[in-house]
Nucleic acid binder design. Sequence first.
DNA 1: CCTACCGATCGGTAGG
DNA 2: CCTACCGATCGGTAGG
Lengths: 195, 195
Amino acid sequence: MSVGHRRARAAPEINRRDDLLRAAARLFVEKGFAATTTRDIAQAVGMRSGSPFYHFRSKQDLLKAAMIEGLEAGHRRLQAAIAGVDDPERRLRLMIRIHFGNLLEGDCHTPMLIHESRSLDAAARAEIAAASDRYQAAWQGTLDELAACGRLRSAASPVRLLLFGMLNWSGQWYRPDGPLSLDEIADAASELLLR
Amino acid sequence: MSVGHRRARAAPEINRRDDLLRAAARLFVEKGFAATTTRDIAQAVGMRSGSPFYHFRSKQDLLKAAMIEGLEAGHRRLQAAIAGVDDPERRLRLMIRIHFGNLLEGDCHTPMLIHESRSLDAAARAEIAAASDRYQAAWQGTLDELAACGRLRSAASPVRLLLFGMLNWSGQWYRPDGPLSLDEIADAASELLLR
DNA sequence: CCTACCGATCGGTAGG
DNA sequence: CCTACCGATCGGTAGG
């Protein structure tokens, strides 16, 4: 009973932690890690300047947590979307569309933060690399399958990297109120890849 | 005569300015604009902390100058390489290879700094956007030409943006000592685009 | 989670 | 281009 009581009281604090993570991710994407102050993040969730350090040891820790939880949430979304999709072409098209969603929809555009891992120490960078590898491993199987049955435009080694470039760079130019929908962009990217 | 004399004495100072620009570009690419201090830049060229401000009004001014001069140097390289190349497919292949060179060879990988223009005021951002548009305009003609004769995989609107994504994102993963040469990467990117 | 604070660092300047 | 310096800001902490 006392445990249940403790948990019930702990819940709001957990939500505050998530609030901080979401605000941090958004600000890091907008202004970059180095240009975002912990005071910016605190203010974004209505806290005072010292309070984020009650939830996180350091600014770097906030970045690490935001990136890893974002990558894992995106990974879960990806897996859920392709579960039971047997045709590899349909699967790849779905993955591309979901990845654009992970990048550009909602408020935690975590994949765009990958470059900021240069601000972390080697141990944290390794954790992020592992989460990122898990995300990319989901793609390699589908690409291999398509290459094996000759439906990929090219199975040459850099294709997966060039594909991620097409997708990830979109954060630089995509505007939600622009002329192109995410469906259209995802279709265009798929057409470039598939034969 | 006195004018000639003055010019002769001014020359070393002009070189120091260029030294600063090159060091700044390299550091901004490596660590990001906000994480690079003007002291880092001064030290990289053997100056004391206050001295860069003899050559540039502000840190932002240094970024603006590095980006614009880098973009223009890359543009000149591009134009020189495709002068007199009439076949649009060969021309596009050349442009892709030269662009990879602008990004990844030498020591001023300026195109990778585009995202840092968010750290500048609106006026400076507009100057950089103009230089960047000049660089991209050189591509649109060739893409249109290829689309007109049916040799482009797709002429849909986002293709130029996706192409630049493939190319520019390479700064995130390319390593000079890795298994892929720039020629191989350029070929792979060309194959994805051309039919 | 707030108040009050600290040491370090940063962009930039004056004066030579 | 250097010396010497300033005001502002920043990440982080103690103590409640």
